[in-house]
Amino acid sequence: MTESGIPTGPIDREPLVYPAPGSFPSSERKAAILRETFRAAGVELGAYDERIAAWLAETADWSTFAVITSWVRRATQP
């Protein structure tokens, strides 16, 4: 798991853990995590990409967000 709480390997059960026990990140924090994940993966975003990324950060629960973000991270690992 990354310092942001994103799983780094295959996920077998719902990721309910976030580094700050008892709380989950705000949509602003999730957007920052997602931007950093895309940057690290070398993903260039267009305006519509940005719009959908913001939507995901605002609407997805933590578990869904963590799984999708984990896919991006793991897709770029050797």
Rank of each mutant, 00 (worst) to 15 (best):
65 F>H: 00
8 T>N: 11
25 P>N: 01
22 G>S: 02
60 A>D: 10
9 G>C: 14
53 A>P: 04
32 A>N: 05
72 V>F: 05
1 M>C: 14
13 R>T: 14
28 E>M: 08
35 R>G: 02
57 A>N: 05
36 E>L: 08
59 T>G: 09
46 G>N: 09
35 R>K: 06
22 G>H: 04
2 T>A: 01
9 G>I: 14
59 T>F: 15
25 P>W: 03
2 T>Y: 04
36 E>Y: 09
9 G>R: 15
53 A>S: 09
73 R>Q: 13
5 G>D: 01
73 R>M: 13
59 T>P: 11
41 A>V: 01
6 I>M: 12
11 I>T: 02
6 I>R: 13
73 R>L: 14
39 R>Q: 03
75 A>F: 06
50 E>Q: 13
18 Y>Q: 07
37 T>Y: 05
28 E>K: 11
64 T>S: 12
53 A>C: 05
24 F>H: 05
8 T>V: 11
37 T>C: 02
12 D>T: 12
33 I>V: 00
6 I>N: 08
49 D>F: 08
48 Y>T: 14
31 A>W: 07
5 G>F: 11
34 L>D: 07
24 F>S: 03
77 Q>W: 11
58 E>L: 06
56 L>D: 13
61 D>S: 15
29 R>V: 09
54 A>G: 12
24 F>N: 04
12 D>M: 12
11 I>A: 01
78 P>R: 08
10 P>I: 14
56 L>C: 09
62 W>K: 03
60 A>M: 13
43 V>T: 02
65 F>K: 00
68 I>F: 13
31 A>K: 04
43 V>Y: 06
15 P>E: 10
27 S>V: 09
1 M>D: 11
56 L>I: 10
11 I>Y: 09
12 D>V: 10
69 T>L: 03
48 Y>V: 12
76 T>N: 09
23 S>A: 07
15 P>D: 06
52 I>L: 14
29 R>T: 04
14 E>F: 11
46 G>R: 11
49 D>T: 03
62 W>M: 05
25 P>S: 00
49 D>P: 05
22 G>P: 06
48 Y>A: 10
45 L>Q: 11
44 E>Y: 07
8 T>I: 12
9 G>D: 15
31 A>H: 05
29 R>G: 01
6 I>W: 12
52 I>A: 08
61 D>A: 15
63 S>E: 13
1 M>V: 14
23 S>C: 04
56 L>W: 09
24 F>V: 04
26 S>I: 03
73 R>D: 10
32 A>R: 07
65 F>V: 02
23 S>D: 04
72 V>S: 01
71 W>Y: 12
5 G>R: 01
36 E>R: 08
63 S>N: 10
45 L>M: 15
12 D>H: 15
43 V>F: 04
77 Q>C: 07
26 S>V: 02
77 Q>S: 13
55 W>K: 10
75 A>S: 11
45 L>I: 09
46 G>Y: 10
31 A>S: 03
21 P>A: 01
41 A>Q: 02
17 V>P: 06
42 G>C: 03
63 S>V: 08
37 T>V: 03
73 R>N: 07
58 E>V: 03
71 W>D: 04
